[in-house]
Amino acid sequence: MSETALRLSPLYEAYREQVADWAVVNGMTLPRAFGRSGLPPVTLSDVSALARCGCKGPGAADWLVSQGVPVPAAFNSWTATENGLVARLAASEFLIEDARAERIETLTRELSKGRRSASGPCYPVLREDAALLLAGPQANEVLLQTCNIDFAGLDLATGPLVMTSMVGVSVLVIAQKRPTDVAYRIWCDPTFGCYLWRTLLEIVRELGGDAAVHTL
């Protein structure tokens, strides 16, 4: 039995006319295929359906460790987990993303009970970000045109997480080293999602790329 669509991606309006086929992932309607095919030099994908949650507070780091979640030692850094990632946004604030929605549901349920560790309370943070994936050999070129950070100059081994403005929108950006290229994950407030998508896609197309489907 196919999954029922319960919600639309924050970017739905931005690309719905270009989508050839739709899928439902974690209850969210997402493109299964865009109108074009091929391997463009840079692609932009909507990964908003990935399950995620956030927490903050003096006891957040210790509480996450007690839940078996690896915690990056330095703030403004991230670490990969088996099915996702954990980002440390400040000394005591975290973003957790996992391809297994049930894992995030468990953490969210526990957080809603007002959890605390020996270091203090841990509060839930609602994360309904628009999440994008910028990939391909020309991906950094898009970033150079849209924000003030040269990601090519960052030491990716340290897992840097950058909070900056991209075409006027406050975003979180991380770079993921992949076998053939570096992919960039971008999160922003959902209300800015369509604007960010349209603006980035315009630049992606100028560089010969296009929107693409990213299998979650």
Binding site: F75, N76, A90, N148, V162, M163, T164, S165
Partner: peptide, 11 residues
């Protein structure tokens, strides 16, 4: 002090 040098438009 946390994020390093940034353009003033971010402030």
């Amino acid at each position: 002090p946390i994020n390093g040098p940034r353009p003033v438009s971010e402030f």
